[in-house]
Design a protein around this nucleic acid. Sequence first.
DNA 1: GGCTTTTGTCTAACTGGTTAGTAAGTTACC
DNA 2: GGTAACTTACTAACCAGTTAGACAAAAGCC
Lengths: 199, 199
Amino acid sequence: MDDDPATEILEATYRALCQHGYADLTIKDIADEADRSKATVHYYYDSKQNLFTEFLDFLYERHTEQLATIEGDTPRERLGALFELVLTDEQANPGQEFRTAMLEVKAQAPYDDAIQTRLTWFDEFLFERIRDITAAGVESGAFDEDVDPAVAADFLVTTITGAHTRRVAVDYSAERLYETITRYAEDHLVADEPTEATH
Amino acid sequence: MDDDPATEILEATYRALCQHGYADLTIKDIADEADRSKATVHYYYDSKQNLFTEFLDFLYERHTEQLATIEGDTPRERLGALFELVLTDEQANPGQEFRTAMLEVKAQAPYDDAIQTRLTWFDEFLFERIRDITAAGVESGAFDEDVDPAVAADFLVTTITGAHTRRVAVDYSAERLYETITRYAEDHLVADEPTEATH
DNA sequence: GGCTTTTGTCTAACTGGTTAGTAAGTTACC
DNA sequence: GGTAACTTACTAACCAGTTAGACAAAAGCC
């Protein structure tokens, strides 16, 4: 927590973002959260856009670190742990407020190349992670042999994205979405023979 | 096109929304698009929030009319037509600008009950439409008998929502998402026996 | 028909509030 | 004394909503 002021401002940005949402996020909100003046924020970051771009880099680092911690002896376990992390984890993602703000940011992507570039990183990172786990599962025989890891990963990223959106837009239960996706994976990825025991 | 001024303003709102996005949408933008003054907009709609709520009602009506036109002799054809309408139809949905604006609106749902209520209508309408088609397919034997229509519809709505979000946030190809979802439906909904012919 | 009054539609100009960013100066440490 | 870190006070721009009134058509009245 004994960061340099620049990092402290990024952490304050996170808290301010959760409290006010992206649309209503002002430099003053961030400054207040960082216990500094508005001008100090501008001292470290030239513009609001500049600050936010660096904030997304900061988030990306945190997010990839989190996804890297995923463990499990089998691909199936690792995939389950990943779903849990991105769909239900409440301690890692302080919840609805942050997800809402991230959806606001996603909607701003077409207006801001720097944002779109970074959101694409997030998307691709998740895709690659799922594709690799799926490929390992296919190779080990745990997953159905005619599953194409890239196609399955693409589909799952889309569904996870949809779960995030629905959770915000129509206040849909995160748990229920988690269960539906897990069920899909169990039913359609896991190979037939070894799974019969599960039923 | 010879509507009353109130409706003309709603149509102007649609055009202004596509041009400026939701975040940057001002009463002036709408007024300019309607070739009227700012005060005239306020003459017909008390507040911006009021105008936008009525605009969403206007959109809902248009959207449900569109979804009602879906035809097809078999449930499979109807589901295919629905995917095409909600995922690729470019003449019905003037494209990226509008989808982007709608994602911005979705992100505002948690801050505005009137918006959330209406987005839930959209979500539920699509869900029910897919569930009914799926149920008809299961009943006729065209779809796998152990498909639960409600579960499948829920999953598909989530995936469609994800496709919309990814298209905006990471500029993902709509066509590719359409193909992935169609493939899922063909592989996992359609009953085994009658489908062998397709492969 | 001619006259006034009312009503519906609309506008220019203004108000009050907000915001990103800046300029100039202060404090604190080396 | 110089520099890094920081603040107060400001500017310029923007926006939702209001006000006061223009203009025309319709309605009521003689």
